[in-house]
């Protein structure tokens, strides 16, 4: 009987654990990009990868604002498209994309590999089932 309660409490406390939100841009310190993204008060974190042709931004939306996830993604996408007209801009809020970008930033991939990784992530995010 007592064991049951210990296990339950363990679960409850573990549930409180979570990562702190990060803000990072890769591969270079793109001040303008950071400024635009920092201004957005609808997101609490972002990680982005930039390529010659693509800008992939994974954002983190606070839990209560997730109802308007699609709207927020579109707004940020529009703003970034204004700033980078010659690049394809993709803005996503997805845990998998975030973790993949984190892995790429850690591995410090360059040019061709970077392009391949970005394409892989894009293909993933387009999956429906």
């Amino acid at each position: 009987m007592k064991n049951k309660w210990i296990v339950i409490l363990l679960f409850l406390t573990l549930g409180a654990c979570s990562d702190a939100s990060e803000r990072s841009v890769y591969p270079s310190q793109d001040v303008e990009l950071e400024k635009v993204l920092d201004e957005q008060d609808s997101i609490i974190g972002y990680k982005s990868l930039m390529d010659d042709n693509t800008l992939l931004v994974s954002i983190e939306i606070p839990t209560m604002k997730r109802f308007s996830k699609v709207k927020i993604e579109e707004n940020i996408k529009k703003e970034l498209e204004n700033q980078y007209p010659n690049k394809e801009v993709i803005v996503i809020d997805d845990l998998k994309v975030r973790w993949e970008i984190e892995k790429i930033i850690e591995k410090e991939q360059e040019s061709k590999e970077l392009t391949k990784s970005i394409e892989k992530i894009l293909a993933l995010s387009k999956e429906e089932t």
């Binding site: 679960f11 845990l95 998998k96 994309v97 973790w99 993933l124 999956e127 089932t129």
Partner: peptide, 20 residues
Amino acid sequence: TIGQLLVFFYIRFFSFTERT
């Protein structure tokens, strides 16, 4: 909670996104 942990597990170790 177990379900949520499973979601994290599948996202981390397999190529599933949040949606899938």
